[in-house]
Design a binder for these strands. Sequence first.
RNA 1: GGGCGAUUAGCUCAGCUGGUUAGAGCGUUACAUUGACAUUGUAAAGGUCACAGGUUCGAGUCCUGUAUCGCCCACCA
Length: 702
Amino acid sequence: MEMKIEGACDPKLYESYIYEEWMKSGYFNPDNLPGNRKENYIVYMPLPNVTGSLHMGHTLDNTFQDLVIRYHRMRGYKTLWLPGTDHAGIATQYVVEKQLKKEGINRFELGREKFIERVWEWKKEYGGIILSQLQKLGCSADWSRTRFTMDPEYARDVQDAFIHYFEKGLLYRGFRTVNWCTRCGTSLSELELEYKEEETKLWHIKYSDDVIVATTRPETMLGDTAIAVNPSDERYKHLIGKKVMLPLMNREIPIVGDEMIDKEFGTGMVKVTPAHDSVDFEIGERHKLPMIQVIDGRGRMTKDAGVYEGKKANEAREEVVKKLEEGGMLVKTEPYKHNVAVCYRCNSVIEPIPSAQWFLKMRELADSAISAVKSGDVKIHPERFEKPYFDWLSNIRDWTVSRQIWWGHRLPVWFCANDEKKEKFVVTKEKPSECSFCHSCEMEQAPDVLDTWFSSALWPFAGIKEEDKKNYYPGNTLITARDILNLWVARMIYSGIEFKNAIPFKDVLIHGTIMTKDGKRMSKSLGTGIDPLQYIEQYGADVTRFAVVWQATGQDIRWDETAVIGGKKFLNKIWNATKFVLANKKEGDEKNVPEGNTEADKKILEGIKQLKQGVTQDIETFEFSKALHDIYEFFWHSFCDEYIEVAKTQMQNEGQKEGTQEILMYALRESLIMLHPFIPFITEVLWKEGIKDKTPLIIHQW
RNA sequence: GGGCGAUUAGCUCAGCUGGUUAGAGCGUUACAUUGACAUUGUAAAGGUCACAGGUUCGAGUCCUGUAUCGCCCACCA
């Protein structure tokens, strides 16, 4: 195919054609890059969820990544941008469950195996959408290496990691009060929680004349197993060791002293419900308190809740309050505002529920992630994001890695089927042929799957061919939004250190978040999202990329549509300036840097030199927006408005004509080179079809 | 409760280690235009740089405080 550079600029005419040319060239794959490239430059793409479709966040994120990749490719690096998708356990399961709901069935009716099949079907149909959208955006990732976190090789590495941690003694099974989503029916880690402010009440309940507690959750009192006060509290310290009768349940519970209790809050006395509050659980551990579970995994009262059995927790709350009031035990009710935890995926209220889970000891791993940044081996840009990173890692608690959902990496854990208590298990990849405990049963695999982040933490090295692991680890730069700094980036860092004995990347770039024009978060469910595909469709990928980078100055972005118009105009300018230069081209042009005769010549040549230095430095320091603004300024004003106008006159003068033509071409070439990482399509098409340089711009020397 | 960020032209934002008339895009106004481009050119209007103090020869830029907005973290039950 060949196209002429004429008429008006129309990205529709060349973007898909150019992308096909790149794909055919194979240059996205570092192994195919020409020349003697010794040094790697690797970017691991933050895995989009298979449930995802391209939104503004991805657009910014991936444009930046493509930009650094293209820049380094032109600089002669062996560039690998590794793409993939994340199976996104809870998110994907939720989507498929919703789909089933429309058909009037739930996953339990379908059964585990059939359900998983459905998810795979779903993945097959929709899971690749996001990647094709990234291709529309012009992303030059090595699609031949695309990975999915549930690919067999990836799954094997995940299991290996689990076994490694277990054998090292970092992974253990425990029975604890954990965050539990009653809708999804699974445990969650603290990073998977979101908080919503809720107007509720603080009920002051009299357990005895001496004991009055304040609580926001009166229904959990049914499971109280102690009262706690601060041992230094003069008002109450004499009560420690005494007992008190638990109202409604007629159970005697002890009064204990615990440093954790804030004397200032409420009455300074706290009801302790180890089964339904993680703090209370810890108090319970310290004082060897029994645990009474009154709420089950579906958010309903258990048989230990007595007459409230079977009721929903919030119904039970009302009834408990009523009962206490009737009994004269409710001494005060005050309005109270606090944050309730909800599931990040389905927004349902989180219940702390006791259950058997698998935990990863974090202290040692977190420390390695801390030192990686403290030592400067990994640099976080901007630097201020180091603080939340250190804060989280310093105060980290063991990570609940097991999830009670079906879609995900199954734990390589096998239980003895004859052991009702589920205490006898082995950790191994393959199902043991014989049970080493009873020597008679078929061992049963643990039903749990791993937290999705357990597998994504291994992303930079999991699932690739052995030789790739050797050649393409570690990487260089990780570009992402701030919300997954701890959720994911920190975990990749210690995982890299743990499994590969090397940090996975040197630089972490945290970019701003794109918000609506009034500063609201873009969200599909709120209807505040702006679809980047509409821009790609209407104006092309280059314009979309331009608009994003133009605005991405480092702060959060209040999305301004007019930047798109600016991009459209700029592309038009480039197109037309190129037409002009081509029309005035000298036959048999050379690539040497021209000398320059006139003042204007010298000025433009100096301008190019300065600009190139500046832009190079800006890209190296992740100042992409500044670089783009500077090239824009140069191209439009210095080159088009000033030099091209002067050139028209200079070309009338036979003595200056050739020199001017050379400079026009040189300035155009340099501009296209510098612009290519930002707006790759138009620059490539003008390079190939206009200038007719034989070396594709994508691999042309910067 | 703690931390972080923001507050500069009508709108969205740049202004690094303090130094001549504070910049850009979009918008607005006037004029121009068959000549690469009207998705254009030239020119212009438009800002007491949130507020109050302070440091300095000099502050949008540094310090202190206040206000408003946004984000994150937090085991006040």
